[in-house]
Design a protein around this nucleic acid. Structure first.
Lengths: 217, 217
DNA sequence: ACCGGCGGGTTGTTTTTACAACGAAAATGG
DNA sequence: CCATTTTCGTTGTAAAAACAACCCGCCGGT
């Protein structure tokens, strides 16, 4: 892990390299690598650590019996996952987290982070505030998905999602971080029906796309 | 407001009555009353305060043009709303908050809560930690809704929601906090179709219900 | 080069849901 | 206590999505 990597993450923002290193020790952290598709947290378990993606990316998903999955969001390098459950000891996960490519994960013990650290680590409070920010951001991400799944039609959901991607990118041209199946899972619709709708929208001149690159008009 | 009310809320848990009172002053708080249906926060605005429900209850909802609404959750007495946006200054709301009955709301300035308070209020850090817990809980609430809306069929959604209500109540008999329309909005389905499905399930002997009281078998 | 798997598009069928319209019961308000 | 509005269940119809089956093209491995 690069020295400057940590202090550029949302969690460690505002600390120095040395402080961050010390915090890692204090938090009882360790790293682990996962292959594509490997499950990192499984629904039903309860966890006492949160994970930070060092490299690669993971998806947070709800797995139904019958094999359907709903993707709640994607977590990229530098971002956290599982912090919600880590903050609520004993709460069983209702989601699973899986690597969507080969990924390296840093685990951080939550109890130690939340404990009112005596005085050894003066930066605990900073970290807690950062974590609050992150939690609020994750809240937004979840709300955003609700926003995109609130239209009842596939087209409505696609437009809601794609418009926001355009807004985020500040351009009508952008690349999305999902494969078709993942996008369908994220929007809660059938993949083939979605492909169909995308083609229909293209025929109507609403948009263009090639693979994951989209152009809205 | 009852003296012991505050210190029994998740936000002020762990503080004394006097401390809580002082914090109220420190946070620049004020109260306001809303009639049933009144909008407290409107999507698109940005806010610098969070609200605590003192009495009554409010719903957090996504309003589409065309008048459809998606209910993300219900906030009861003692609970917070808007804390997500209050933690992220300038972020425009993508949801609205409306009173679903006559409600009294306490507003708390977020900047002052999050500011690293010099030394006047020693309990700021406690409050921030509590807020982190609350934020995590709200995360769960949002995830829970995603869980309940991830089945594609109305029946699947109903069963997901009702099973959890049963689990929460620790009994197969329970009362839900939603009217039919609200439940339909929460589950993201058509009300009449949902009524229909409920009746069908009753005919099949899966459950009984009268008004908001349900009995699962 | 061949094979096999995966991602993605197409098509047709079937099931489900949304939608609209209505009526009865219950709640509300004067 | 009556009038009005809201809530909820019912029905039928039209529209949409799920589902299944299939195709093609691409890529990685052998």
């Amino acid at each position: 892990m690069n020295d400057s990597f940590l202090i550029n993450t949302a969690l460690f923002r505002g600390t120095s390299v040395e402080e961050a290193r010390e915090m890692l020790r204090c938090l009882g952290s360790y790293e682990k690598e996962y292959e594509k598709g490997a499950v990192i947290f499984r629904a039903g378990e309860s966890v006492d650590s949160m994970g930070m993606v060092l490299s690669g990316s993971v998806t947070i998903e709800i797995d139904s019996l019958w094999g359907d999955k709903t993707i709640l969001g994607r977590v990229e390098a530098g971002q956290l996952f599982g912090e919600t459950y880590a903050c609520i000891p004993g709460e069983p996960l209702m989601v699973s987290v899986a690597a969507c490519e080969k990924s390296r994960i840093l685990f951080l013990n939550a109890d130690r982070l939340l404990a009112t650290c005596s005085n050894s680590c003066a930066y605990h409070n900073k970290l807690v505030r950062n974590l609050l920010q992150i939690s609020a951001q994750k809240n937004l991400a979840l709300s955003r998905r609700s926003l995109h799944t609130s239209p009842k039609s596939i087209r409505g959901r696609l437009l809601s999602y794609l418009s926001e991607q355009a807004r985020l990118n500040g351009s009508y041209q952008f690349t999305i971080p999902f494969s078709r199946q993942q996008l369908a899972d994220y929007l809660g619709v059938d993949r083939s029906a979605m492909s169909n709708e995308l083609s229909k929208m293209r025929r109507e001149g609403l948009l263009r796309f090639e693979k994951n690159r989209f152009l809205l008009r």
